[in-house]
């Protein structure tokens, strides 16, 4: 049982890391700021989500698990807001470059 949980954790965190990797590559390789923003938010969303999911079975009790979920929710909120603000700022500046 424990082994199964550990394998689940490893798989989920690795998958999350892949998303972060992809997001970083996107940040570096994508042609303009809007697409870069797209790449970053996806990494935040899914990458962190998978990592938190992988860590949940390892959490010490309900409170620990709740804290982990809270971390994910807060990053979601902040990420979404910041992405919105950056996109608006970019649009004010003119066409994407």
């Amino acid at each position: 049982m424990n082994v199964a949980i550990d394998i689940f954790t490893i798989v989920a965190i690795s998958a999350g890391a892949v998303f972060f990797m992809a997001g970083t590559v996107g940040l570096l390789r994508f042609p303009d700021s809007f697409t870069r923003l797209h790449a970053l938010t996806k990494a935040d969303n899914l990458g962190l989500g998978l990592i938190v999911l992988g860590l949940l079975p390892q959490a010490s009790g309900l409170l620990g698990a709740l804290k982990l979920v809270a971390v994910w929710v807060l990053v979601q909120l902040a990420g979404a807001t910041v992405a919105q603000l950056i996109a608006h700022a970019l649009r004010r500046k003119g066409p994407p470059t």
Binding site: A70, L74, L77, A80, L85, H88
Partner: peptide, 16 residues
């Protein structure tokens, strides 16, 4: 006034 997203966050976040 800044865009809605920030206002939304500013209403949601403080209680937490």
């Amino acid at each position: 006034r800044p865009e809605g997203a920030l206002a939304f966050l500013a209403q949601l976040l403080p209680p937490l």
